[in-house]
Write a protein that binds this DNA or RNA. Structure first.
Length: 228
DNA sequence: AAATCACGCAACCGCAGTGAT
DNA sequence: TATCACTGCGGTTGCGTGATT
């Protein structure tokens, strides 16, 4: 790989030596302040590159190797939950639905529920493997009403096969899951109807609803994750 | 054996949010 | 209040490698 145009920062794949230098730095100074890390270590990388390398590869919490069936299944479930149940079907024409539903993919949120996997890993895995496996044409985007994914019938997700049954919490049934999701939908409506959006000059600030909705979403995800 | 193709993954890019000064 | 550095995210790109011709 060649250096960047200004000759200051290297680009491309990291070498073993660079990895070791960055790991040593983090060992001593901890994570964060990546720009300073880049300067301090003498690495010819920018801070963003250092951060990305650590978060996606060097961090001990990152799990390497192939995704398990359980992980695949969970990704599919979460993707479905975030895309079709919670967000896309949240048929409220408010700033919130715009903020959370239009062309947004919450890979970080999904990845956060899969121990050891990064958003980048999950995103790549979805785009390369799972989207094909599910017959999704192109790259699915939450909020894209024309996407093949959003039109998929329930049964096509292969989430009820015997090998995957354990992914449903032992003390909860699909019907209960449905109830929780419906409840989330209702709660979300409530939140968006009771919280006054603040109107700035000529647009709503969509993120003003975020905290309540994020908590609500987390509750729904906890339901999925609980008892694993 | 060489050339081409397809796939998987790591890394980059651009943008936005947040906090410090 | 304005500015800047830092952080985090999703989308995209392009390299490495194995399979195929």
């Amino acid at each position: 790989m060649e250096a960047a145009g200004n000759g200051e920062h290297r680009k491309g794949l990291w070498t073993v030596e660079e990895d070791l230098i960055l790991m040593d730095y983090v060992k001593v100074h901890g994570k964060g302040k990546w720009n300073r890390a880049a300067k301090f270590t003498g690495l010819k990388r920018d801070g963003k590159s250092c951060r990305l390398r650590w978060m996606n590869y060097l961090s001990p919490s990152v799990k390497r190797g192939a995704f398990s069936e359980e992980e695949d299944d969970l990704i599919i479930r979460l993707h479905k939950l975030l895309g079709n149940r919670f967000l896309f079907n949240l048929d409220i024409r408010t700033p919130t639905s715009c903020a959370f539903g239009q062309n947004e993919l919450w890979w970080s949120l999904i990845a956060g529920r899969i121990p050891g996997r990064t958003d980048n890993q999950v995103k790549n895995h979805w785009n390369i493997h799972l989207s094909k496996q599910l017959g999704v044409k192109g790259k699915y985007k939450i909020g894209d009403s024309s996407s093949e994914f959003s039109k998929k019938p329930e049964g096509d997700f292969n989430i009820k096969s015997s090998s995957n049954d354990r992914l449903i919490p032992s003390n909860k049934t699909e019907a209960e899951l449905q109830n929780v999701l419906e409840g989330s939908h209702e709660k979300a409506k409530e939140i968006t109807s009771t919280q006054e959006p603040i109107l700035t000059s000529d647009f709503y600030d969509p993120y003003l609803y975020a905290p309540s909705l994020m908590e609500l979403l987390d509750e729904s995800l906890d339901f999925l994750w609980h008892d694993f």
